[in-house]
């Protein structure tokens, strides 16, 4: 079976769909909604969370037996905060413009409930390798939703993808714009992020009836 056993694969694949951190576990909504007006910011945010959660899960899992349970929240916060500072400094050094767009939301990865939620629910009770896979799986699940939301909001809101004008030039009236198509500026505003996520939840739960709440 090579590197990954069946159980290991489940750790990575489950959070991508049926146990998705955003749409099913309801974790990490804040940053997911705020930065998804552009696809690029969504991708960078996804990668940042991937790094923080992957490394953080391993660290917590390695020291899980020596943390006194009364102060574990503070220990977890310190580990996350350190990793987030690294991400923030790297972004500022190599992608300054983007770090301005993300602004405080990089810092808010610290209080992203996905991170604390996975530390509490998984890393404190499992070995480093499994925790690493769990971290990767959950942050990929998070990134997938971010990218879907970012894709639709940027495409419908500004007519671009990653900054490229895929629907033609709105000023010179080429491509779709020649047919009278207009960008829906409303998609860029914050309320639409909530409604797009609501629709994703709707689609997902119509496809898989087990997930329906009563």
């Amino acid at each position: 079976m090579g590197l990954l056993t069946k159980k290991d694969q489940a750790l990575i694949l489950d959070p991508l769909a049926d146990n998705n951190p955003i749409t099913i576990q309801v974790l990490g909504i804040c940053s997911a909604l705020a930065i998804t007006a552009e696809l690029k910011a969504s991708i960078v945010m996804g990668i940042s969370v991937l790094f923080v959660l992957g490394v953080g899960n391993v660290v917590i899992s390695l020291i899980r037996n020596i943390i006194p349970s009364k102060i574990r929240i503070i220990v977890q916060l310190v580990v996350v905060a350190t990793l987030v500072i690294i991400v923030d400094q790297v972004l500022k050094a190599f992608a300054y413009e983007l770090s301005k767009t993300l602004a405080v939301f990089v810092g808010l990865i610290i209080t992203n409930c996905i991170i604390m939620g996975r530390f509490e629910a998984f890393a404190l009770g499992n070995g480093p390798w499994k925790s690493f896979l769990d971290g990767i799986g959950n942050s990929l699940g998070y990134a997938v939703i971010l990218i879907i939301v970012g894709f639709f909001r940027e495409l419908l809101g500004s007519g671009t993808l990653l900054g490229f004008q895929v629907l033609g030039d709105p000023v010179a009236k080429t491509g779709l714009y020649a047919l009278g198509y207009e960008n829906n500026g409303f998609m860029v505003l914050s309320p639409m992020a909530l409604i797009v996520v609501g629709i994703i939840i709707w689609v997902q739960r119509s496809r898989n009836k087990d997930l329906i709440e009563d």
Binding site: V26, P191, M192, L194, G198, V203, R205
Partner: peptide, 23 residues
């Protein structure tokens, strides 16, 4: 409420509508 929207889904959409109001 339509079954797949119950609970979380409708809460998201209602919050979105409230956010439009607050805009």
């Amino acid at each position: 409420v339509p079954a797949p929207l119950r609970g979380l889904g409708i809460t998201f959409i209602v919050t979105g509508l409230m956010a439009i109001g607050f805009n």
